[in-house]
């Protein structure tokens, strides 16, 4: 937790953390799936065949096919053994390899998350800087009020309003789907607005803090123009908490966009996770959870390195 660590130590720590996360996520998700009430064979059969075709005979066929009557320890070791060979197994419901399912859905999730972060930065950075340059000023207070308001509006309501305005009335963007880049705009904007509501305050606080800090005064006494000092010092120092915050946002976005995915019919990993849990698709749940956990670790690594790049103090010693 101290300020400076060599590059290799960071890597090693994150690698160890990745391993621990993989292990814990695997065990926890497996244990929880076992603890769920109801007969797994029935749930899986329901997920596979739909309620018109699903009945007790289908459930029994599923039980035999997947060996669900084996002891849970045997099933767990099966999964761990396969995982050691980088095999996530096949989806119990869809029959396709889990890795295929996840890679498709994760790709779309990452795309949406990236779109949302870009949208939020485009909104938050200018707004935050404007507010932070004069803390307590009019801009600061107005943007605070708007931020709180936007933050309180549920994502789906925001989504419906945007769809009405930009898709139905102005016919600028499509309502839902994911055929081309134009489909990305409205869901990204929905998520981005929600994020920007918080992140513009982070930018504002960081800028305000940096403005107030001692070395900033020092820079001014050195005779640099106000504009230059803002550019050189304030932004550089303000970007640290912002980068950290963007990382936290990414983690939240990748898993937390189920609602926006549902409204915009976007195929994402959050959506897949919800379905997998309800259909009792253990292999999919484990695979998805594992992927999300590892992404979290990777993101933190990227943040660490980015902070090192921005602030030389974290590199020294």
């Amino acid at each position: 937790m101290t300020t400076a660590r060599p590059f290799l130590t960071i890597l090693a720590q994150r690698a160890l953390q990745a391993f621990i996360v993989a292990f814990i996520v695997g065990i926890v998700s497996f244990a929880m799936m076992q603890a769920l009430p109801g007969d797994a064979a029935y749930r899986i059969a329901a997920g596979r065949y739909g309620y018109d075709m699903m009945d007790a005979a289908a459930a029994e066929a599923v039980r035999v096919e997947l060996g669900l009557d084996r002891h849970w320890i045997v099933q767990l070791f099966d999964w761990l053994g396969a995982l050691a060979q980088f095999d996530l197994g096949r989806s119990l419901v869809y029959g396709s390899p889990v890795i295929d399912e996840i890679s498709v859905q994760l790709g779309y999730s990452l795309l949406l998350a990236a779109g949302a972060v870009i949208a939020s930065l485009l909104i938050a950075v200018p707004v935050g800087i404007a507010a932070g340059l004069k803390p307590g000023g009019l801009v600061d207070r107005v943007t605070l009020a708007i931020s709180i308001f936007v933050r309180a509006i549920p994502a789906f309501a925001l989504g419906v309003v945007l769809v009405l305005a930009f898709a139905v009335q102005l016919k600028l963007f499509p309502v839902a789907g994911f055929r081309g880049p134009e489909h990305l705009v409205l869901p990204s904007l929905t998520l981005g607005l929600g994020l920007a509501a918080v992140s513009n305050r982070v930018v504002r606080d960081a800028v305000a803090d940096a403005m107030a800090a001692e070395w900033q005064l020092f820079a001014r006494t050195k005779g640099l123009s106000a504009r230059l000092s803002v550019l050189r010092h304030v932004l550089r120092n303000a970007s640290l908490p912002v980068v950290t915050y963007v990382g936290v946002q990414m983690a939240y976005l990748i898993e937390g966009v189920v609602i926006v995915e549902t409204v915009f019919a976007w195929p994402g990993i959050g959506h897949a996770l919800v379905h997998a849990i309800f259909a009792r698709d253990v292999a999919m749940v484990q695979g998805t959870a594992l992927t999300l956990g590892l992404i979290y670790v990777a993101l933190n690594l990227v943040i660490d390195l980015a902070c090192r790049g921005i602030d030389p103090r974290t590199r020294s010693a």
Binding site: Q17, V21, M33, E255, G256, L273, I277, V285, A289
Partner: peptide
């Protein structure tokens, strides 16, 4: 705990 997807925990 942080690395465990929060959504997973709540959904489970």
């Amino acid at each position: 705990v942080l690395a465990l997807p929060g959504l997973l925990l709540v959904l489970m």
